[in-house]
Design a protein around this nucleic acid. Structure first.
Lengths: 237, 237
DNA sequence: ATTCCTAAATGATAAATGTTATAAAAATTG
DNA sequence: CAATTTTTATAACATTTATCATTTAGGAAT
């Protein structure tokens, strides 16, 4: 399923058009491989079909910041009219994704306004997620940041049916989490242990378990509204 | 002029359409007043006509993070299909802005694909700016962050002809800068003094002067590519 | 099992930034 | 121009987070 469908009520023609797109070739990459590199550009948009990917930016001196995660169904690389992309996208796990020529996508958007708006909406939500990260990095403590990230990812996974009960597959290492929350791996490790000691989450064998969602939500000041979750839908998805 | 025009070559019909939009009523607000509040929603999009505005998010416990600045010509509030906006927008100086009914704007976008793509592109650049902020907050020191912010704003102001030589009007207080860079006002003051001592910038009487742009750019690791600046255009704009 | 590699954990110390309180300077207002 | 408010500056001290060096634990490959 395409994340876009969350943002619009699709007519059968819309759905047919989307399915047409998803018949485009599927590319597979191994964990760690790069999808598209900062400073380059290619006239295609992509839809992640399976696996996790992440966006990051490098600094000239070797530091790097992860600026977002991509989950199955996410549309990305919609860089219409931009000279080049400003960040790198790489596979965190083995992934597969569809590649749709930009021209084909643009033509479709002209014909189907509904799709066009859904694509815009997808970007707006990505943007809202980034703003929440800005609040995390600017104002929240390392502990709160990590908690917030766990809540974001768990909520997004729930929306696409990739959780079971209070747990979900979770391929991020402490190093990845450190690069996303803007702390050193050493410090992240300590914070991680605090969380465990507080019986908020358990993370092992690439599986995340949310032990006390209410308390975690409060501590991290997490409010899912920015993810455009209907308040009921998250419960019964 | 509308920032949109940077992102597409407009036909005369396009331009006419845009000018039609800009004949919409102009609202004036005093410094400090709120344009739209987080959690609310209104079926309009807006174009800042004069003055500076800023986007911010509040935390339940009173902390707040500025997540972006709006300059004359910027289109904002394009929250098509979103339940509610996730952040507040307020005037930093006295401002005036156009308000365009969303329905009217959406109809126009359906008719003029070029405009539609320019609007999307505008969002993509906003998003790219946010990612650069994420790198600042996550990886750069307070000094580098502040330098980067100065470079961003100076560059954007240059693009709209609001600089003269190496200086520009600059209404932000140290408090605002602290809320944008995620440090305390006390610390921001210290960093500000370092910059002055280093003869990098001078900020007084609401006027910013870039004393050594090359060195500032290097120290802050600033590369204007993400703002979609053609390398020449910034020089001769 | 042995080796190799990556991920996770620990401890000592240093650096960056936050906190609180207060004062000086500048801008606004009556 | 005096009064008030906002902005900038300073100092002492506390806390968070980074650094660096080393260790342990797990998986994957031989």
């Amino acid at each position: 399923m395409l994340a876009l469908e969350r943002y619009a009520r699709f007519s059968s023609e819309d759905r047919e058009a989307v399915e047409g797109l998803l018949r485009s070739p599927l590319t597979r990459l191994r964990a760690g491989e790069t999808v598209i590199h900062e400073g380059t550009s290619s006239p295609v948009i992509r839809v992640l079909s399976s696996g996790w990917a992440y966006r990051y930016k490098d600094l000239p001196d070797g530091r790097r910041q992860i600026v977002g995660f991509l989950l199955p169904g996410d549309l990305f690389n919609l860089h219409i009219r931009l000279r080049e992309v400003d960040h790198t996208i790489a596979a965190l796990t083995p992934i597969s994704f569809h590649t749709i020529p930009l021209a084909q996508f643009a033509a479709l958007m002209e014909r189907r306004a509904n799709l066009s708006q859904a694509a815009l909406c997808n970007e707006l939500v990505t943007s809202a997620i980034q703003r929440e990260w800005l609040v995390s990095l600017g104002q929240r403590s390392a502990f709160e940041r990590l908690g917030h990230l766990f809540m974001e990812l768990f909520t997004r996974l729930k929306l696409i049916g990739m959780t079971s009960g209070n747990s979900c597959g979770f391929p991020l290492t402490q190093n990845d989490l450190a690069d996303a929350t803007g702390v050193t791996p050493v410090h992240l490790n300590r914070v991680m242990q605090d969380m465990r000691r507080e019986k908020l989450v358990e993370l092992r064998c690439k599986r995340l378990q949310i032990l006390d969602e209410d308390r975690l939500r409060n501590l991290a000041m997490f409010d899912a509204a920015y993810l455009q979750v209907r308040h009921e839908s998250i419960e019964y998805q």
